[in-house]
Amino acid sequence: MTKREQRELRYEKDRRSLKMATSIIEGSSATASAIEAGYSPRQARTPYRLLQGPEMRRRMQMALKRSGGSIEAIAEVVADAMEATKLEGSFQTPDHKVRLGAAKLAAELLGVMRIDPAAPSAPEVIINIPPGLANSGRWNLRD
């Protein structure tokens, strides 16, 4: 393969990965985004493989910046979700499922909690309690 062909191949991979990342950020599913970006249907069946690695993470960050995404915007969406309500009959009630999901995401983003989906039976949850809070009376940490 000539250097020019290698360069063109690398450019095509970059174009496809950026297009896929942009499509995901705009709300499409990973599979639909992969097909739209030009990946084969076979590759699109396992989009998680296409999303792995530091290069795709960089592409996702670029696409997020292009679409106006920022840490502040993400925090605002999570904060709104933590106040989610739903209509039951004619009453607004807390939407606990959405609120719990937002709280988990917020805790993970803050580094307070990490959920390990690769744990053998159930997800492993690791909670980091700052030293000042551990004995503040807000937490009961007895054995």
Rank of each mutant, 00 (worst) to 15 (best):
T93K: 09
P117E: 12
E8G: 00
M62L: 05
G111C: 13
P41T: 05
P47R: 10
R59L: 06
T22M: 10
M56D: 02
M20C: 13
I71P: 02
Y11E: 15
P123N: 10
A63D: 02
T93I: 14
G137V: 05
E55N: 07
N135V: 07
R7G: 03
L64I: 04
A44K: 03
R49Q: 14
S17F: 01
Q6W: 00
G68N: 06
E5L: 07
G27A: 07
R57D: 14
V78Q: 05
R138L: 15
E36Q: 11
S23G: 12
L50Y: 06
S29G: 15
M56F: 15
K19D: 15
A119D: 10
S67P: 00
G27M: 07
G111A: 15
N135T: 03
A84I: 04
Q61L: 11
S70N: 02
N135M: 08
K3M: 12
L50R: 04
G27V: 06
E72W: 00
M56P: 00
A21L: 07
R15M: 12
G27L: 10
I127Q: 05
T2H: 06
Q92P: 01
E55Y: 05
D95G: 01
A122C: 09
P120W: 05
G111F: 10
R16A: 13
R45L: 15
Q52P: 00
R66T: 03
G53H: 01
R99M: 13
I74A: 14
D116S: 08
D80Q: 13
L100C: 08
H96M: 04
D143L: 15
G101T: 02
A134S: 05
M62S: 05
S90L: 12
E108M: 12
K13L: 09
R57W: 06
N128T: 12
L51H: 03
P47A: 12
A63V: 01
K13T: 03
V125Q: 05
K19M: 15
K65E: 13
E88H: 07
D143W: 11
A81R: 10
R45Q: 12
S67V: 03
R42K: 10
P41S: 00
P41E: 03
R99K: 12
S67Y: 00
M56L: 08
L50E: 07
A21P: 02
N128W: 01
Y39L: 12
S33D: 11
L100A: 14
G132Y: 07
R42N: 11
R42H: 10
L109W: 00
Y11D: 13
L105E: 05
I35L: 15
E55W: 02
T46R: 06
E124F: 00
S33L: 08
A21K: 05
S33V: 11
G68Q: 08
P41F: 01
L64S: 14
S70F: 03
L100V: 09
V98K: 09
A30K: 09
R10M: 08
M60P: 01
V125D: 02
A44E: 04
R49P: 03
